[in-house]
Design a protein around this nucleic acid. Structure first.
Lengths: 212, 212
DNA sequence: TAGATTGTTAATCGATTAACAATC
DNA sequence: TAGATTGTTAATCGATTAACAATC
C-alpha cells in the first residue's frame, strides 16, 4: 500500500500549524482539540484532522492533541531539526534584511555568505557577515555545502544567477526578484514576489470599498 | 444577470500575468496567444483564457492578445493606476528594506512614513524618510489618508499594532510579523510569513532528495 | 476563404467538508 | 461508563481542464 502523495495545499498549511502551536506553547497551553485550533486559525476542524492524518495519527480520541507533541511531529515532517545552509545573492535591501533576520537560525536555517557584484558593497559588514564578490560564487560553492540559495538580485539578473547556482549543484532556490525564475526539474524554486502579495491585498481592499 | 464573484485563486494569478506581460513588453513582443503564454508561465492555455474571461474578452480570435492591451487591462482590474498611500510600522530589517524598495512606487504604492518604538531608531534616515516615534501613529493617521499599513514589528507586537491601526480606520494590513494577525471583517489582512515560504521550499527540497 | 485562436460551456479532477464509527 | 474527540470514509463543492462553436 503505497503512501499517497500529500498535496501542496496541505504542505503549505504545515508551517502555519507549526507557528500556531509554537504560540500556544509559549502561552503554556498543553493540549488542544481540532475544534479549538480551527477557531484560532480560521480553518475547519475537519480540515485540520484531515491534514494531520496525511502524516499520521497524532491525536488521541476524547482528548485532542498534545501541543508539544504535535508541534514536534510537524517539525519532524518539515525536518526543521536538521541544519540548513544558505547563501544570499544580492546585498541590496532585501538581501541584507534576510541576512540579518534572526528568525531563520532559530529554526535551523543559517546564512553563511552573501554575495554582490557592486564594488561599493563588497567587503561591507551585514550582520555577522561580510559581503563577498559574486565572482567568488563558483569557488565558494565548490568548497561549501549549500542547501538553499536566496536570489535577491534585481529582476534582470535573477535568471542568470539561478543558472549559475544550478550549474554548481544548488538544489533549492528562494527567489525574491520580481521575475519568476525557471530551473531544471531536479531543482526546487520558490518564487516569492512580494509585489504580487501587495497587489492582491490592494485588490481585495478595493473590492471591500466598492461593497461599502 | 449578476456578475459572479471571481475566486481568490484567479485574483492571485493576475499579478503574475501582469509581471509576465511587463516582461514581454520590455522584450518588444507585441502580441501573444494563450498557448504561448501558458508555456512561459507553466499554466494551461485553457486556464489563462478562463481566468481572463472572468473580467472580459481581451483577446481576438485567430490573433491572440495584444501584450500592451492585456497588460493595461490587468492594471485596470488591479487598479494599479491609482496611487496607494502606505506607512510601515517597525523599522527593523524588513521594515527598512520595504521602505527602500523601488519597485513599489513604480506601480503607484508610496511609503510616506515609517514608525518604531526604539529611541535609537527614531529620527534615523531610511531611504527618503525619517523614522517617526510610534507614539505619533494615531495623530498621523488622523491627519493623513493611509490606504495600506505594513506591520513589520516583532511577532509579540503585531496584533496590538494591527488593533491600533484598525482603531484608526486603516482598512488594509500587510503583515510581515511571524504571527497571523486578526482584524474585523471590514479590514483586509495579508499575512505574508516569509518563514512559511522557506519551510515549504525546504520540505519540497527534502522530498526531491528522498526520491533520488 | 482557410487557419488560427478566442470565448464559453461541459466534464473532470482534486480539495474541502460532513458524517460517524472507533476509541480514549 | 458516559462524554469527548479523533481517524477515516463518503459527499460536496469548487477549480481546472477539455472541447468546440464562434469569429477574427
Amino acid at each position: 500500500m503505497e503512501k499517497q502523495r500529500v498535496s501542496d495545499a496541505v504542505i503549505r498549511r504545515l508551517p502555519r500549524y507549526y507557528r500556531q502551536l509554537s504560540q500556544l506553547e509559549r502561552e503554556g497551553v498543553l493540549r488542544i482539540s481540532s475544534g479549538q485550533l480551527s477557531r484560532l486559525m480560521s480553518l475547519t476542524a475537519s480540515q485540520i484532522r484531515h491534514d494531520l492524518n496525511c502524516f499520521g495519527g497524532f491525536g488521541q480520541q476524547g482528548y485532542g492533541y498534545s501541543v508539544k507533541g504535535l508541534k514536534s511531529a510537524i517539525a519532524d515532517i518539515l525536518e526543521l531539526g536538521q541544519q540548513k545552509h544558505m547563501i544570499i545573492i544580492g546585498a541590496g535591501n532585501i538581501g541584507q534584511a534576510l541576512a540579518c533576520y534572526e528568525g531563520f537560525p532559530r529554526e535551523g536555517f543559517y546564512v553563511h555568505a552573501i554575495f554582490d557584484n557592486n564594488p561599493r558593497l563588497i567587503g561591507k559588514t551585514v550582520g555577522r557577515l561580510q559581503v563577498s564578490d559574486i565572482q567568488e560564487l563558483e569557488s565558494y560553492l565548490a568548497a561549501e555545502k549549500v542547501n538553499i540559495a536566496v536570489v535577491a538580485t534585481p529582476g534582470e539578473f535573477a535568471q542568470q544567477t539561478a543558472d549559475r547556482l544550478t550549474a554548481c549543484g544548488v538544489r533549492a532556490i528562494w527567489n525574491f526578484a520580481p521575475i519568476d525564475v525557471a530551473a531544471p526539474n531536479n531543482v526546487v524554486v520558490e518564487n516569492v514576489s512580494l509585489s504580487d502579495s501587495l497587489y492582491a491585498l490592494s485588490y481585495f481592499m478595493n473590492q471591500l470599498d466598492e461593497q461599502a
